Computed example of a mutant assay.
Amino acid sequence: MIRLLLAATLAAALLAAALPAVEDARADRAATNLDADAERMVRAVESLAYGDDPTLSLSTAPRRTVRVSVPARSWTAAGVSYVAVGGKPGERGSRPVLTYALSGGRETVRRLSLPVPLRTPDGPVVLRGSGSHALSFSLLSRPEGPVVVVRRA
């Protein structure tokens, strides 16, 4: 009986010692996946800016679609509260950033190094809920020069 109690106590202590490392690994995996999505966004915008001509109309503009995979909370990945392109949720205007918040409040703002300005017509495009979300990047001509407009596909 004492051996069983000692084994259970030792197992609980080992689990308590390992859980912070598991949490860090889950957060790192989710962040790595979202950083890869950000790189795909940058490549899509570069492809537009260097390979296509901008147009005046959104309906005829050259376009690229990027799928963003928001991981679900699991033993191998931390949950994600939101992913936003163009700024933080609720902000006005748009900036060339990808913002995401992991469950538990850790927020990360990643600057997107883009060759043309990024515009979001209705504020940042916010993705909530796990799964795959499609974003559309369109190259438009404006008086100040070409811009990329991002919206949900």
Results as ranks from 00 to 15, higher is better:
Ala18Glu: 13
Ser47Thr: 14
Leu112His: 04
Gly123Ile: 08
Val125Ala: 05
Ala78Asp: 04
Pro71Lys: 03
Gly105Ala: 02
Tyr82Arg: 10
Val85Tyr: 09
Arg64Val: 02
Arg92His: 09
Val66Met: 07
Gly87Tyr: 00
Ala134Gly: 07
Glu39His: 14
Leu135His: 09
Arg29Thr: 04
Glu107Trp: 12
Thr65Ser: 09
Ala77Thr: 14
Arg63Asn: 07
Pro121Ala: 04
Pro89Asp: 05
Pro71Gln: 08
Ala72Glu: 14
Leu102Asp: 01
Tyr82Ile: 00
Thr9Val: 11
Ala44Ile: 06
Arg73Gly: 07
Pro121Asp: 11
Ala36Phe: 11
Ser130Asp: 15
Tyr100Cys: 04
Tyr82Phe: 15
Ala101Arg: 15
Gly93Met: 01
Ser69Thr: 12
Thr99Ile: 02
Val68Trp: 11
Phe137Gly: 01
Asn33Ile: 09
Gly104Phe: 14
Thr65Ala: 12
Arg128Ser: 10
Pro96Gly: 01
Arg43His: 14
Leu56Phe: 15
Pro89Tyr: 06
Pro54Val: 06
Glu39Lys: 06
Thr76Arg: 13
Leu118Cys: 05
Ala72Met: 05
Ser59Ile: 06
Ser74Gln: 08
Val116Gly: 04
Ser136Gly: 15
Asp37Gly: 04
Ser136Trp: 10
Pro121Arg: 12
Arg119Pro: 10
Gly123His: 08
Gly131His: 01
Ala21Gly: 15
Ala84Asp: 05
Pro20Asn: 08
Gly123Leu: 04
Gly90Ala: 11
Pro20Leu: 06
Ala27His: 11
Ala12Gln: 09
Ala11Gly: 12
Leu19Val: 11
Ala18Thr: 09
Thr65Leu: 13
Ser59Gly: 08
Val80Ala: 04
Ser74Ile: 06
Val125Cys: 08
Pro115Asp: 10
Tyr50Met: 01
Leu6Phe: 14
Leu127Ala: 01
Arg63Gln: 14
Leu98Trp: 00
Val126His: 09
Glu91Gly: 02
Asp24Ile: 03
Tyr100Asp: 02
Leu15Lys: 00
Ala17His: 06
Ser103Gly: 07
Leu118Gln: 04
Val97Thr: 13
Leu56Pro: 00
Val22Thr: 13
Phe137Glu: 03
Leu19Cys: 05
Leu112Ile: 00
Thr120Cys: 15
Pro96Gln: 06
Ala101Lys: 12
Val66Leu: 02
Tyr50Arg: 10
His133Asp: 07
Ala13Tyr: 10
Leu14Met: 12
Asp53Cys: 00
Ala17Thr: 13
Tyr82Leu: 07
Ser130Pro: 10
Val116Phe: 11
Arg106Lys: 11
Pro20Ala: 01
Arg26Gly: 03
Leu135Gln: 02
Arg92Ala: 14
Ala16Ser: 15
Ser57Glu: 15
Asp28Met: 05
Ala27Leu: 01
Asp35Phe: 10
Ala21Met: 09
His133Pro: 10
Val45Arg: 02
Glu23Thr: 07
Thr99Glu: 09
Ser132Leu: 10
Pro89Gln: 05
Arg29Gln: 08
Ser81Gly: 04
Pro117Asp: 07
Gly51Ile: 11
Ala30Lys: 00
Ala36His: 11
Thr65Met: 08
Val70Tyr: 08
Thr9Trp: 08
Ala11Cys: 07
Ala8Cys: 10
Pro20Thr: 03
Pro89Thr: 00
Pro62Gln: 04
Val125Lys: 00
Ser57Cys: 02
